[in-house]
Design a protein around this nucleic acid. Structure first.
Lengths: 192, 192
DNA sequence: TGCATTTCTTAACTTAAGTGAACGAATTAT
DNA sequence: ATAATTCGTTCACTTAAGTTAAGAAATGCA
């Protein structure tokens, strides 16, 4: 399981065995059951997450309705907005599948960065990469219709469509579950 | 005019007069006429922009249609994606109004960061802030209808509605100009 | 296992956005 | 200053998404 973590890290920096062991000794790995809520609206938290296995999602509740805005799967990192701003969270984070997560916080990561300055470098690259990805994603969403968004998802993250409930997918695409059903039927129609 | 720049910078780090003069001596300020294209699709570039006065926009051309995904006004910074990845740009950047811009590039900013390590700190805070803002923006867009997006814009960036052509605004909201006209008429109707 | 709940799909109807066209107003170019 | 283009709005019509409701399928729980 930790292999996923070290694979990920090796994309950015290289670690000695000692460093790897130091990381593992921090005991940051957690098994989380499907359906568990990791962060609630209104709650303050210092924790950020790295998905080793499974899937977590971020969602708002607006007028009593869940609006899912992101899914995080293997090798995705999530730092909630409230951690950065130290304000109550505006959204929820919960587990879509039984998952194994690395859960850390500012204190721990400050300690790590202290011991291994390399990590600072990785964090910088990571956040730069993330910003770039985020912008492209945003642009893609803005410039596409719901149907195109679905087709893009089918291309880029086909696994999501299998592992995530339809009604969560629908709100992720910016539409209602009924519209997603219809849209899929429409696409099948066209193919034949 | 440079006051805008120093006001901005003072939010992050403090500069001595010497440092300010060193910055000014680099001659990074440019006057750009309305309608000027700063970056074209397919083009590679190392330049990034900081808006001192005026407004620039980022847009894609998809199926022959302009899709505006962002407006940058006073105190906004824009680093095109192609600068980060050193790939041909997927979008255009052009001037909405006569503007005064700070235009810099990796070489110059490496030089600045070398002379004034402070700047590195500012850049890190900036990109962290930007990422956070970007995420909130994205979520807001995803969870809103075109009408709500327009009303939010009216709240948060009322100036944009005045200074930007309606058809560019429309595509920024993810709809056609005709729909924006209708939507505005609908809102006026409701008010009365 | 069986019951209850949640989830997914289908359908009919409503509402809002897309499309194509027309026309006046504003802007730009000559 | 005038002609030409671009821009914004309106309209009629089409298409797609929202809404409400119902039933089937899957899931969770006792």
């Amino acid at each position: 399981m930790q292999d996923t973590l070290f694979d990920f890290i090796s994309n950015y920096i290289s670690l000695t065995e000692d460093e790897k062991n130091a990381l593992l000794s921090l005991d940051l790995f957690h098994s989380v059951k499907k359906g568990t809520t990791l962060l609630k609206e209104g709650q303050k938290s210092q924790d950020f997450y790295f998905v080793l296995k499974g899937c977590i999602r971020k969602y708002y509740i607006i007028d009593g309705e869940e609006k899912t805005t992101a899914f995080y799967t293997e090798m995705d990192a999530l730092t909630p907005h409230c951690v950065l701003t130290n304000t109550p969270s505006e959204y929820f984070i919960s587990c879509v599948e039984d998952s194994i997560l690395l859960i850390s916080n500012s204190d721990v990561s400050a300690e790590i960065n202290n011991k291994f300055p390399k990590f600072d470098i990785m964090c910088r690259i990571l956040s730069e990469e993330l910003l770039a990805k985020q912008q492209i994603n945003f642009d893609e969403f803005k410039t596409s219709s719901p149907e195109l968004r679905y087709l893009n998802l089918l291309q880029n993250r086909p696994d999501l469509i299998q592992r995530v409930p339809q009604h969560q997918l629908a709100s992720y695409l910016g539409i209602k579950p009924q519209s997603l059903s219809r849209l899929r039927a429409r696409i099948l129609e066209k193919k034949s």
